[in-house]
Amino acid sequence: MGTIIKCLHLIAAAIFAFSTAPDIARRTMAITRASGATTRTSEAWPGVPEDGTVSGTVRVTGPQTVATRIDMAADPACLKMHPAPVMSDEVVTGPNGALKNAIVYISEGIGNHSFDPPTIPAVFEQKACTYNPRILGMRARQTLRLINSDPTTHNIHPVPQNNREWNLSQPPGSSPIEESFAREEIIPVKCNVHPWMKGYIAVFKHPYFAITNKDGMFELKNVPRGEYTIEAWHEKYGVLTQKVTLETNQAKTLEFVFKR
C-alpha cells in the first residue's frame, strides 16, 4: 500500500514538473468566448456571468510635478527627429489632477482561475527615441512584438524580477522581434544606448487591467461577481489599494487619489 502511494506521489510530482515546462506552458489557444454578447459566462468561473464593471478615475493632488527636459544630444539621429524641446512624460496630468498612464488591475480575488492569452500580439514600438506606448499592458504568455520605427539602433532591455531577463539590439529597418513573458509582474524597460528612454511592460495572468487615459479614467469590463482587491500603480507615485465587492451585473465606481 505504502509503495503504491509513494508511486502516486512520484507520478504527481512528475506531472507537475512537466506541466510547468515552458514549451507546454507557452502553447496558446484561440479564445472561444462569444464577443458582443451582453451577458457572458466565464470559462474561468464556470456558470458565473461575467458582466460586472469596475470603472473610475486616478488622480494626484498636491504641488504639480514640473516635467523635466530630455536631452537627446547623445544621438544626433534622435535629436534630428525633434525640432522642439522634448519634455519627460513620466507624469502626465489633466484637469483636477487626472493622472494618465496609471495601471489599474485586480490584484486579488482571481484565485487559481486561469485564462488563455489572446492570440494577437501586444505591440511595443520605439518611435522618435521614445516608447510607444510608454506603459504597455499585456498578458502572460501573449506574444510581445517589438518594433523599431527609428533610423537609429535601439536595444530593448527589460529588467524583470520574476521573469527571464533578456537584452536585444534592434537596428533600423530590421524585422519585428517577438518575445513573451511567462509570469505576472510590472517590468521596467530600458534602452541602454539612449538612457532617457524608459517604459514599463505590465504582464497580467488575467484580462482585468486597464491603463488610464488622459482624463485619468479606467474601466475593467466583464468582471464576474466576487470580492476583489483593486490596485492602482503609477511609475512615480507607487501603489494604492482598494477592496470592492461586486454582485452579478453590478457596476462600481472607484476613485484613486495619490497624495504628494
Binding site: T153, H157, N167, L168, I177, N192
Partner: peptide, 9 residues
C-alpha cells in the same frame, strides 16, 4: 548588464 545581444541585428 547593458550589453545586448546583436543576434537579431
Amino acid at each position: 548588464t547593458p550589453m545586448p545581444s546583436y543576434a537579431s541585428g
